[in-house]
Design a protein around this nucleic acid. Structure first.
Lengths: 233, 233
DNA sequence: CTTGCGGGATTGTTGAACGAATCTCTACGG
DNA sequence: CCGTAGAGATTCGTTCAACAATCCCGCAAG
């Protein structure tokens, strides 16, 4: 950089410097990830390099590296010579995502055996978080808790790769939530169902849990599809 | 670039410029991908930025972009301030990969219905390719044909995301093949089993095909694990 | 043998520059 | 009036050179 530059571009990405040893690109990606999942950047929006360089005080190269990171997660798409965009999911994408999700989650639940209460701890926390957030009326937080519930559910399997795929899948799915007019209508029904699922798991009834989960996901998919169709009219 | 530079760094990445409109980074990634899957770069090897910049005649930034691409595919791992490496898979990774693979592939097969003969065309081609390669004694090509067979098998579902995950999974799995002492011993048994699988699918016997596939993958996993243990002694 | 401390090597990040592709807006012709 | 071709502006793709931050290796001291 020019020796006369008085600013310190290094440590001012958004807010705090997150957990210890992350690169600048990762921190930039964190900022953008939040903006996307929280709806600040809506599907279809283009992310201008120039503008974000100014805004986040990082170099173009670093920003582009962050773009790659997020593209990898499915939260951005890269179009050659055109820039990066927040992806727009159509109904086929939704069906595709839910199909993979059903396969993975149900398989995880089915192959679970004697899950100790300890390992279900995080799940119980997520359920509780969802309920308190709902009481506060913070439906975005309810959505977050729900995502975490499912991530932890899959995590019970202890497979790094399944966790990764699920993470990406849920992040992408979250984009679709922005098409729903009412977050409450979208998330509320699943508070009780998550709790029910948790109880089935606690009781060790994996087969029933898997079936319940399959129906759960079918309903969720139908709900979202309905929201899509409503929006198009 | 400096205006006095007489070389044309743009079009000399390895060999030909591949399919029409790919970025330089993608072409670099193609070159490196081949080197990795063909065993030119063995697991554990570090890829020096400086050396590859000289070798491939691209800038560091572009090379780093290629690294990200391959890291995304699981063919490279990035360690902060340490560089990128060809990942070393241990036995747990193998089990993990096969677990996901079994889940996905079996689920695909099970949910297949009235697969037209047309759609099985690519699969038949892959089986034939494998057999002719085997006759030639080219066991690396047999491995490639086998990977393609499974990729095409999964492709029957028509799910973009399942295809993607499978692609990454198979690429990573291929790294493990380098641990096997004899490629022939590794791949030969599956020539016949692929053909058998294809016939079951042609006959529409999806349930039997799924069961056969599950056993198939179990055997394959056991074989690879045995090779691993052998190597450690 | 372990611990602590350089010094060298490599990665991380920056800023500026230029070629190439896309987009936009105007002007022209049907 | 509409559609299209072209020029200009915008933005991306890639390169380069420099500096900062971090890691690795060898060596000395305890």
């Amino acid at each position: 950089m020019a020796t006369t530059d008085p600013s310190r571009p290094r440590t001012v990405v958004g807010e705090v410097s997150l957990a210890g040893c992350s690169s600048t690109a990762e921190r930039v990606a964190d900022v953008l990830r939040r903006r996307i999942t929280e709806g600040d950047l809506v599907p279809g929006a283009r992310l201008s390099e120039e503008r974000l360089v100014c805004e986040l005080h990082v170099s173009r190269n670093t920003l582009r590296e962050a773009f790659r990171l997020l593209a990898h997660e499915g939260l951005l798409v890269h179009r050659l010579h055109r820039g990066v965009f927040v992806p727009e999911l159509d109904e086929d994408d939704l069906v595709d995502l839910y199909r993979l999700r059903r396969t993975l989650e149900c398989d995880v639940v089915r192959s679970l055996e004697d899950v100790g209460a300890v390992r279900l701890g995080p799940l119980a926390d997520d359920v509780a978080d969802g309920e308190t957030s709902a009481a506060r009326g913070d439906w975005i937080a309810v959505g977050t808790a729900n995502m975490r519930f499912h991530q932890h559910l899959v995590g019970l399997l202890g497979s790094r790769r399944v966790d990764e795929v699920t993470g990406r899948l849920l992040a992408e799915l979250r984009l679709a939530f922005h098409y729903a007019a009412s977050p409450q209508r979208l998330h509320e029904p699943y508070l009780a169902r998550n709790r029910a699922l948790l109880e089935l798991l606690t009781a060790g009834e994996t087969e029933r849990a898997a079936k319940e989960l399959a129906e759960y996901l079918d309903d969720s998919q139908a709900e979202l599809l309905a929201a899509y169709r409503l929006r198009r009219a």
